[in-house]
């Protein structure tokens, strides 16, 4: 199922399929946020933002506004 990172539940994993190339900073890509890589939502900060993710074995947190721009394909359990 196609969705975006902000729709993940805690503990859920997905594969990154695509993102809006104009708004996603290069730095995020360099940290491993690339189409084809896996992403898992580990934690949501209090008040719902930012999100704590495991992307391709990098542990990082991004804000909701960025997460909304990254498309994913859920991995079926």
């Amino acid at each position: 199922m196609q969705t975006t990172i902000d729709q993940l539940r805690i503990g859920q994993s997905a594969t990154i399929t695509d993102f809006d190339i104009e708004v996603i900073p290069l730095k995020l890509i360099e940290m491993g946020c690339l189409p084809g890589n896996s992403v898992e939502l580990l934690q949501i900060a209090p008040f719902g933002d930012p999100l704590f993710l495991n992307i391709n074995d990098s542990y990082l947190a991004i804000r909701l506004e960025t997460a909304r721009k990254i498309q994913i394909e859920l991995i079926q359990e």
């Binding site: 900073p25 995020l28 930012p50 704590f52 990098s58 542990y59 990082l60 947190a61 991004i62 804000r63």
Partner: peptide
């Protein structure tokens, strides 16, 4: 543009 990435080290 606001933008934020923070690494969460072990």
């Amino acid at each position: 543009k606001t933008f934020f990435v923070v690494e969460m080290p072990n």
